[in-house]
């Protein structure tokens, strides 16, 4: 008998930890890990809402599946970019990568 609120609070916690990681990690892979944490928090929320409020509906599950696919795609492209950048500039430090400077 776990109340819905527990899941939401854990998910919120995971989410802000992820944000914190994305904003403060210097290592690009670290940033990517933060993003993964945030996506996981989203999934907990989706499944919690599905399970507690709309257990008969299938849309919640579809959302979760799509988030999974997005996460996989994000990880693949993100890591490919990181490898590519590393190969070119031999760094994975986000502070040293400023090609987009105006």
């Amino acid at each position: 008998m776990i109340p819905l609120s527990w899941y939401l609070i854990v998910a919120a916690g995971l989410f802000v930890v992820g944000i914190f990681g994305v904003l403060t990690r210097k290592n690009l892979i670290g940033i990517l890990m933060g993003v993964e944490l945030m996506l996981n928090a989203v999934n907990i929320n989706l499944l919690a809402f599905w399970s507690y409020l709309y257990p008969q509906s299938l849309s919640g599950l579809t959302f979760v599946a799509v988030v999974f696919v997005a996460a996989a795609a994000e990880a693949a492209v993100g890591l490919a970019l990181i490898i590519s950048i590393y190969r070119r500039r031999t760094t994975v430090n986000a502070e040293e990568i400023n090609l987009l400077r105006g």
């Binding site: 403060t24 990690r25 210097k26 892979i29 693949a76 994975v92 986000a94």
Partner: peptide
């Protein structure tokens, strides 16, 4: 798969962020 990918990426980009540099900005 994702965690393994990340571990691979970590290993491929090793020795760059050396220990003296702070890991957070």
């Amino acid at each position: 798969s994702i965690a393994i990918l990340i571990i691979f990426a970590v290993m491929l980009t090793r020795n760059i962020m050396d220990a003296e540099v702070a890991s957070l900005n």
